[in-house]
């Protein structure tokens, strides 16, 4: 009985709606789908999303691995404060993130944006702003996955390597990185999914200039509002496919990490 209630709830809330995005994209055959994905504006939006996601994943991976090493392997004043602050971005509403970035980097009145604009650098309403917003909302995802793995592997092997004369970089590359690699990859996958889907923060900082600062998620809204229902569904279906592939990868990685931990 409970089983039926649960299945009905999940089908009505998730499975059925999500399946409609694929049937909706193909409702009038492949022609309109091809039109959508050859539309230069849509292609630019997809390219901008790719650029922002790439930056967000790279920056957050470097930041995440570096700060995780500092938090786990070093002691310094303010360590607990730093550990608490890194989680902050996950709790903040995307629209508030956008507003915060506009207040600091807006080219007219921003704390840092006005001097930067005078130096000829525009951040808000331009690609750097979109990169900043996407990086902000996904910031702690790699870090959070790497910290427990680092705690788990301990320092014995690193100390052995150091005592045999390996430098810090060689130790990191040959010992630490191989040990934490699945945690890093898992975090990167989560970061990728979050970055692709970002909407609210990007909407505020991009100014939504079509063809210039429009990302894929913004173009879904734009297409839908312009009554190009099938176009919206086509782009949404492409994004959903990525999400679903990501879920499956994450599931596989999780089973793999749990097995390693168990053995």
């Amino acid at each position: 009985m409970l089983r039926l209630v649960v299945i009905a709830y999940l089908v009505l809330l998730v499975a059925w709606p999500v399946s409609l995005v694929f049937t909706g994209a193909l409702s009038d055959g492949l022609g309109p789908v091809i039109d959508t994905f050859t539309d230069p504006l849509v292609l630019r939006a997809l390219r901008l999303t790719a650029v922002a996601v790439l930056w967000a994943v790279v920056l957050n991976t470097v930041f995440g691995v570096g700060v995780a090493l500092l938090l786990v392997r070093r002691s310094f004043p303010g360590r607990r404060l730093l550990a608490a602050l890194v989680d902050l971005p996950l709790a903040v509403s995307p629209v508030v993130v956008g507003l915060a970035l506009v207040l600091v980097y807006g080219s007219r009145n921003g704390w840092l944006g006005a001097p930067l604009a005078q130096a000829g650098v525009q951040i808000v309403f331009s690609t750097p702003g979109i990169v900043l917003a996407t990086t902000f909302i996904a910031m702690p995802l790699v870090l959070r996955e790497v910290v427990p793995v680092l705690e788990e592997v301990g320092t014995d092997q690193e100390q052995a390597a150091r005592s045999l004369g390996a430098g810090p970089w060689a130790t990191f590359r040959r010992i630490t990185l191989p040990a934490i690699r699945w945690g890093v990859v898992y975090g990167m996958v989560l970061c990728l999914a979050r970055a692709i889907g970002e909407f609210g923060a990007v909407k505020v900082v991009s100014g939504n200039l079509i063809g210039q600062t429009q990302t894929a998620t913004l173009s879904v809204e734009e297409l839908y509002m312009n009554f190009d229902r099938q176009g919206a569904f086509a782009v949404a279906a492409a994004l959903s496919s990525v999400s679903i592939v990501v879920i499956i990868i994450v599931g596989l990685l999780r089973t793999r990490m749990e097995k390693r931990r168990g053995s």
Binding site: A193, F199, A236, S243
Partner: peptide, 22 residues
């Protein structure tokens, strides 16, 4: 079902609104 539970985490939010509207 285990996979379905994770879909809302991974799906872009604007797509979530779109599919419910559909």
């Amino acid at each position: 079902i285990d996979v379905i539970i994770d879909i809302p985490f991974a799906l872009p939010t604007v797509v979530a609104g779109l599919v419910l509207l559909a």
